[in-house]
Amino acid sequence: MGERLYIHRHSVVHSLPSHVKIIAVLFFVLVVVSTPITYWPAFVIFLALVIAAATAGKISIFTLSKRALIEVPFILFAVLMPFVGTGERFELGPLNLYRDGLLAGVSIVAKGTLGVLSAVILSTTTTAREILRGLERLRLPTIMVQIASFMLRYVNVISDEMERMKIARESRGFDATGVKHWKVIATSAAALFIRSYERGERVHLAMLSRGFDGELPHTESKSVGAKAWVTALVFPTLALITSLSFKMNG
């Protein structure tokens, strides 16, 4: 699953250590979220920075936009905003819109989109495994990292299992069309749980028999030079400067 998202290229963005990238993305999104939408030219610069980062990472804008589609439901929600609300109204063509609603809607779409795009750049240039290692270096509790690594390791196995059950259902003529079919699907979910749990037990036994005592062996990680940090933090820092300069002039 995680591997399907990663797109292998040789680029500066790909070669940066993952924890540095995670911090850079988080920093960038924080700056974006803290900037009021009324400084709209700043958002044009933010978008330019995102596109620059994608280009540096050799990801096509098409891939980037395709993966950002996950955000669509929230856009639909934001589109409603100018029509519902209170306060000052104005005419835009045939439409009668609320000014505050329009601003808030634009803000939600702009910030949400920039957040999604940044996260997509992270996951297309970093393997899921590397992201986990990065989280570990950022001091996420070991047990959480272990849970996440089990999840990544088994997600394909379990979703394939689910797919096989789906094929089995369909080859027996099952076609889910409405509420009356919930029982069949819920039973499948239960079977999936039992299979997942039993697999968890087997994995646990296999680990015990190999000497597992609650700690996973650590692979040593080399220290990260200042250069990597500087490279990664270029984008969020530029964003911060943009945001602050608008604040001072605004």
Binding site: M151, A176, S188, F193, S196, G200
Partner: peptide, 25 residues
């Protein structure tokens, strides 16, 4: 020490089951 494998597989299960669609109407 069972936490990691069992919570891990539970996480996998939740992730998978969220992809299981229930038709409404």
């Amino acid at each position: 020490e069972k936490t990691a494998p069992l919570a891990g597989l539970t996480a996998t299960f939740i992730f998978a089951v969220q992809m299981l669609n229930f038709p409404v109407a």
